[in-house]
Computed example of a mutant assay.
Amino acid sequence: MLTIPLTADLVRGALELERTARGLLPHRLPARARAQCADPQLAQAESQPSGVRLALRTRATTVELDTLPTKRVYAGAPPRPDGVYDLLVDGRPAGSASLTEGDTLTIDLGNGSAEHRPGPVGTVRFTGLPDTVKDVEIWLPHNETTELVALRTDAPVEPVPDRGRRVWLHHGSSISHGSDAASPTTTWPALAASLGGVELVNLGLGGSALLDPFTARALRDTPADLISVKLGINVVNTDLMRLRAFGPAVHGFLDTVREGHPHTPLLVVSPVLCPMHENTPGPTAMDPSALGEGRLRYRATGDPAERAAGKLTLEVVRRELARIVRERAAGDPALYYADGRELYGEADFAELPLPDGLHPDTAGHRRIGERFAALAFAGDGPFADRAA
Score class of each variant (00 low, 15 high):
1 M>Y: 13
1 M>E: 15
4 I>W: 07
4 I>K: 06
5 P>S: 08
5 P>K: 12
7 T>Y: 13
10 L>K: 06
16 E>Y: 11
20 T>M: 09
21 A>D: 15
22 R>C: 09
23 G>W: 06
31 A>K: 00
35 A>Y: 00
35 A>S: 01
38 A>E: 00
39 D>K: 01
45 A>M: 02
46 E>P: 05
53 R>K: 12
55 A>W: 01
56 L>P: 00
56 L>A: 06
58 T>Y: 03
58 T>S: 15
60 A>P: 05
63 V>Q: 03
63 V>A: 01
63 V>I: 09
63 V>N: 00
67 T>A: 11
71 K>N: 15
73 V>R: 15
73 V>H: 13
75 A>D: 09
75 A>S: 14
76 G>A: 05
78 P>M: 01
96 S>H: 14
96 S>K: 14
97 A>N: 03
103 D>Y: 07
104 T>H: 13
107 I>E: 09
108 D>Q: 09
110 G>L: 12
110 G>Y: 07
114 A>D: 09
117 R>L: 12
125 R>D: 12
130 P>E: 11
130 P>L: 07
137 E>P: 02
137 E>R: 10
137 E>N: 09
140 L>A: 02
142 H>Q: 08
144 E>A: 12
154 D>C: 05
160 V>K: 00
171 H>M: 02
172 G>Y: 02
173 S>Y: 02
180 D>R: 15
184 P>R: 03
190 A>I: 01
195 L>Q: 14
195 L>H: 10
195 L>I: 03
198 V>E: 02
199 E>S: 09
200 L>Y: 08
201 V>L: 11
201 V>M: 08
202 N>Y: 05
206 G>S: 10
207 G>Q: 04
207 G>F: 06
210 L>D: 02
218 A>Q: 00
230 K>L: 08
230 K>M: 12
231 L>K: 01
232 G>V: 01
236 V>E: 02
236 V>P: 02
243 L>V: 11
247 G>N: 15
248 P>H: 11
250 V>A: 03
250 V>M: 02
253 F>V: 04
255 D>W: 07
256 T>D: 11
258 R>L: 03
259 E>H: 13
265 P>G: 06
267 L>A: 07
268 V>Y: 03
271 P>K: 01
273 L>S: 05
274 C>H: 12
274 C>Q: 13
277 H>F: 10
281 P>S: 10
282 G>H: 09
285 A>Q: 14
293 E>A: 15
297 R>A: 15
298 Y>R: 06
301 T>D: 11
302 G>T: 03
304 P>F: 12
311 K>D: 15
311 K>F: 14
313 T>G: 05
318 R>K: 12
320 E>N: 11
327 E>I: 07
328 R>D: 08
333 P>V: 12
339 D>G: 07
340 G>V: 01
340 G>D: 02
341 R>P: 07
342 E>G: 14
347 A>Q: 13
347 A>Y: 10
351 E>P: 04
354 L>R: 04
357 G>W: 05
359 H>F: 01
359 H>C: 03
363 A>L: 14
363 A>Q: 14
365 H>N: 06
376 A>C: 02
378 A>N: 10
378 A>T: 09
379 G>F: 10
379 G>R: 04
380 D>W: 10
381 G>P: 03
384 A>I: 00
387 A>G: 15
